[in-house]
């Protein structure tokens, strides 16, 4: 457990299910997470690990009939979000907690001008501002993200993918929120644009002192950009810590180690890469024991039946039986 001080965002034992007619999908299982003011935490995992679900749960934007938060708690500045009435949630969304989504091509309404879409945030949350003030703010934000304000009467289809994502960022940050949930903001963009967008987010978060939960599957981005990182597998956090500690590659959860092993190293001369054997377990099936067991090279008998606890040392947590009584990581 980390030291208890009032963090910005505290997620305890969160469990989220998708209930369809055929089966129940266990997307997030007993997940813990902390985020402090101004902190940039990366949330790493494969597709289907439950990362987006987690972010949507914070904002309570899960698909209505299907998504259920089955247990746990999410506290923002000490206030419990899961019981909060919708009217209060509306006041939070977009103003105190913002989210940017993965695919910029479809995130914007094709029939509204980009200026109007940024303006909408101000209209929703700052009714006391005058029209001129709002327009000025919109112009300011657009300049900040690198789009000339003269284009605010254009429509989304007139922009490229990278520019669209900038507009999305402008929408997310115009209200200067305290927490930004960034769900794979660069995955859909090409590499050169990726760097620009990440740079933009970094500058803005520094300017507005925004905490960022950066969801990604790209370890390189985490290394470059984040202060701390949580590794997610099958809906639970299997390792967390500072980027230095985790990326030292000395002591890692077998999954994390496997992830590192997948990345080609410029220095070594490898004839073949080492992927992690097997596929992520079916989220419809509830596991006994460790969720990574079937794919782990170091699996023991115990792993099949007993779920490992989170073993923490100096702020670095690893949920694996291998690190049970160790004091040296």
């Amino acid at each position: 457990m980390e030291e208890s001080k009032v963090s910005l965002l505290e997620i305890d034992a969160l469990t989220v299910e998708y209930r369809t007619d055929d089966a129940i999908v266990h997307a997030v299982n007993d997940l813990d997470l902390r985020l402090d003011k101004g902190e940039t935490r990366g949330l790493v995992g494969e597709t289907g690990a439950g990362k987006t679900t987690l972010a949507l749960s914070v904002l309570r934007l899960l698909p209505e009939r299907v998504g259920h938060i089955a247990g746990g708690s999410i506290r923002y500045e000490g206030r419990e979000l899961l019981q909060m009435p919708e009217a209060e949630m509306l006041a939070l969304r977009g103003k105190r907690i913002s989210m940017i989504f993965q695919d910029p091509m479809t995130s914007l309404n094709p029939t509204h001008t980009v200026g109007d879409q940024i303006l909408e945030v101000l209209n929703l949350h700052f009714p006391e501002m005058t029209k001129q003030q709002k327009e000025a703010k919109v112009d300011e934000m657009m300049t900040l993200v690198g789009i000339p304000p003269s284009r605010k009467t254009d429509f989304p289809h007139q922009f490229s993918g990278g520019m669209k994502q900038r507009i999305v960022i402008a929408m997310a940050l115009v209200a200067e929120p305290e927490l930004l949930l960034a769900d794979e903001p660069t995955t859909a963009l090409d590499v050169t644009i990726q760097a620009q967008i990440l740079e933009l987010i970094r500058n803005l978060k520094n300017q507005f002192h925004t905490a960022v939960l950066l969801i990604t599957h790209d370890l390189g981005v985490v290394a470059e950009f984040c202060d701390t990182v949580s590794v997610v597998y099958a809906g639970r956090v299997v390792e967390y810590g500072t980027v230095e500690a985790v990326f030292e590659k000395k002591n890692n959860h077998p999954y994390t180690a496997g992830l590192f092993g997948c990345i080609p190293d410029l220095k070594d001369d490898q004839p073949r890469l080492h992927p992690i054997a097997g596929r992520m377990s079916d989220p419809r099936v509830v596991h006994e024991g460790c969720c990574f067991c079937d794919r782990c090279d170091h699996a023991m008998e115990r792993c099949k039946t007993v779920a490992p606890a989170m073993h923490v040392h100096k702020g670095h947590g690893i949920a694996c039986h291998l690190f049970e009584n160790r004091e040296d990581f």
Binding site: L90, M99, F101, T106, N109, P110, L124, H125
Partner: peptide, 26 residues
């Protein structure tokens, strides 16, 4: 089901407003 509806809600707009302003026209 479109993403931009989700974006609008993430901005803090109530569902009714979203339907009226965003969904209807499209």
């Amino acid at each position: 089901r479109q993403d931009y509806i989700r974006t609008a809600r993430a901005k803090g707009a109530a569902m009714q407003v979203v339907v009226r302003k965003h969904a209807l026209r499209n």
